[in-house]
Structures are given as structure tokens and as C-alpha cells.
Design a protein around this nucleic acid. Structure first.
Length: 320
DNA sequence: AAGATGGCCAACCGCCTCATC
DNA sequence: AGATGAGGCGGTTGGCCATCT
């Protein structure tokens, strides 16, 4: 949506944008003398070239004499948090409990400060309960790494990328997002491709692909395999979830899937031993019964086979 | 020094509710 | 009962400014 450029007139010739001190004075003087009455009639009566709605907003959010400006106190902050836990985003209702504060001011304060503060405290700013998205992220990372590992089996991949993948796989349940960022190179400007995908991933939003974008994973031509691996794994993850925004899952050919084979059959990488271990870990730890990365170390014994993966894929592909 | 980036927040937009006819 | 308009509400935008690179 385009925002109205600063200080222009709308189609009715009414001014929009920031208020000048002169306009403020006219509005205050008029309301002090006559009250606001009908907001729609006010601009004409006061001699302002504004719409009534703009006048009302300016008065209630800025010019009202009982408005209390300045930083929020700790008491106010706590009150807002508690009221938000009770009322949700009912800013007007919350504002009634904070004399002199406007709903707009509280909303802005929430969005710019309190939301972040709660998240840093490990609380979900919507539910006010301990955050679970970290666990969700780690659970999904298991899946992504599993899928990445499957893709790895079908291509040449350099040692560096494998080491980074292994770093990911050994993340504990205490892993911070910054560590994950670090492993993924999230703060590396050259890695914007994976950044975008992962950011969407963090946000929990869908990653939409058109049918032409869904391609068979092939990393052989990329300089940085991991950089391509992540989005590919995300796509594969989406396929497994039947979670395409633009394409019905049923239209996606099974030929688009990477082959699900054991490393020992396909991969000629010089770091085969590490891959073997990695694949074992990935397969075991991403079994449908696994719920957190804490379980990763508990599944080192059983060697998964193709039948296992067929079942696994079917289970996941059938999930909504 | 200069461009890029990110935070802040005033103001706008669109939708909703409610009162009135 | 339905139409209309006014006011209220929450989400979003984008200009300004400070900080970073």
C-alpha cells in the first residue's frame, strides 16, 4: 500500500500528513471554546483544511491536555504487560487503565519495546507463556538437516559444508538462535538467499514456490553447497508437509524428490566417514517419534533402510 | 565522510460497531 | 429491517533520526 506523501492534499483538497503548529493552535483553540462536537463538522467550523477524522486523531493522540508524555514507568510497563496478557491487542481497553496514555502510544510502545522484551525473557508475546518456537525451530531443523543429508547423498559436496551441517546436527536443545544464525551464516551479507528462506522459516510463514521453481535438488554447480542446500531442504520439507502455497502437492511429481538411499551406496565424497555418521544421526533423530534435539544422541544403533524412508515420506506427505 | 540500516512513532487506512432514520 | 453516517479501533506505513559499516 502506498503511503500518502507528506503534506499533500487528498482528492477533496484536504491536507494530509504532519500537522503544523498553526493547525494545532487552531484546533486546540476551537475545541477549548466550543468542544469538538461533530468531528465531521469541526474542520469547517474551525477553519481547518483537514478531514474530521484527522482532527479527531490529532486531538486524542497528541493535543488533548490530559495526555501524559515521556517514558513509560516500570509500573506502567508491568501494567501494560499484565493487561495485554488479559486483553490481548485491545489497545483502547488497555489505555483506559493508564490515565494520560493513548492507545496509539501504548500500541507503539508494545510493538517497539515490550514485545522484544518478552521474547528476550523467553516468553511468547502473544500467549505470554514460555516460548515454544525455539523447540519448534529445532524440531524443524532436524527435518531440514535430514532432508539436507538426503540431498547430500546425491551430489558432491565439499568438506566445509559438511562440517557446518554437522555443527547443525549437534546443536543441543539449549542452542540459541544466534548460534543457529552463525552456523547458517545468517549475518553474512553474501548469504542472502538462505537468509530469506530461514527468516521466513523463523517467522513460520509459508515459503511459496511456483511449479517452475520446484526443481530436482542438484548442488553440483554451486560454489557454496550449504547456501543452496538450505532452501532446497526447505522446499523438500514443504513438499513433505504438502505445504505449497501456489501448487497443489498432488501436482508435484515424485520424480522431484531426491533419491532416498544410504550414503554407502551413492556418495563418493572424500569425507565419507563423516557423512555416514551424519546420515545415521539424521535418519535416526528425525524419526517421526522424535520431538526434540535432545533425542539425537539416543538413536545411534539402528540403520535405516529404504522401506523405512518410504513409510516416513508417506506419513509426512499425507499430513495436512 | 557517506551510504546503509534499523528503531521510533505520528499519522493514515480500512474495517467494525453503534446510533439514527 | 435495512441503509447510512459517525466515531472508534487495530494494523500498517513511511519519514525522521541515530547508529553502524
Amino acid at each position: 500500500m502506498m503511503r500518502t506523501p507528506i503534506s499533500i492534499n487528498d482528492e477533496n483538497g484536504l491536507k494530509k500528513g504532519p500537522w503544523s503548529p498553526e493547525e494545532d493552535k487552531i484546533l486546540v483553540d476551537h475545541i477549548q471554546k466550543h468542544g469538538h462536537g461533530s468531528w465531521r463538522a469541526l474542520p469547517r467550523l474551525a477553519g481547518l483544511n483537514r478531514c474530521g477524522k484527522s482532527c479527531r486523531l490529532r486531538w486524542t493522540n497528541y493535543l488533548r491536555p490530559d495526555i501524559r508524555r515521556g517514558n513509560f514507568s516500570d509500573q506502567e510497563e508491568n501494567l501494560i504487560i499484565n493487561l495485554h496478557a488479559l486483553l490481548g491487542n485491545k489497545w483502547a481497553a488497555i489505555a483506559t487503565h493508564l490515565p494520560g496514555r493513548t492507545d496509539n502510544e501504548i500500541k507503539n510502545f508494545w510493538n517497539t519495546h515490550l514485545k522484544k522484551k518478552l521474547m528476550q525473557m523467553g516468553l511468547d508475546p502473544v500467549t505470554h507463556r514460555p516460548r515454544t518456537d525455539h523447540l519448534d525451530l529445532l524440531n524443524n531443523l532436524q527435518q531440514i538437516i535430514l532432508n539436507a543429508a538426503n540431498i547430500v547423498t546425491n551430489c558432491d559436496i565439499n568438506n566445509n559444508a559438511l562440517i557446518r551441517l554437522q555443527q547443525l546436527m549437534t546443536l543441543s536443545s539449549n542452542s540459541s538462535q544466534s548460534l543457529i544464525n552463525d552456523v547458517f551464516g545468517i549475518n553474512n551479507n553474501n548469504n542472502t538467499h538462505s537468509n530469506n528462506y530461514l527468516q521466513n522459516f523463523y517467522d513460520g510463514s509459508n515459503i511459496g514456490f511456483s511449479s517452475s521453481q520446484i526443481i530436482e535438488p542438484n548442488l553440483q554447480n554451486f560454489e557454496d553447497p550449504l547456501q543452496q542446500l538450505v532452501p532446497q531442504a526447505c522446499r523438500y520439507q514443504e513438499y513433505l508437509n504438502g505445504d505449497f502455497t501456489n501448487v497443489a502437492a498432488s501436482t508435484i511429481s515424485s520424480s522431484l524428490l531426491p533419491n532416498l538411499v544410504s550414503v554407502s551406496h551413492r556418495c563418493d565424497s572424500p569425507v565419507k566417514v563423516e557423512e555416514d555418521n551424519m546420515m545415521k544421526n539424521a535418519k535416526e533423530c528425525c524419526s517421526p517419534s522424535s520431538t526434540t534435539l535432545e533425542t539425537w544422541g539416543d538413536f545411534m544403533n539402528e540403520d535405516a533402510n529404504d522401506a523405512y524412508w518410504k513409510d516416513f515420506i508417506e506419513q509426512h506427505a499425507s499430513q495436512p
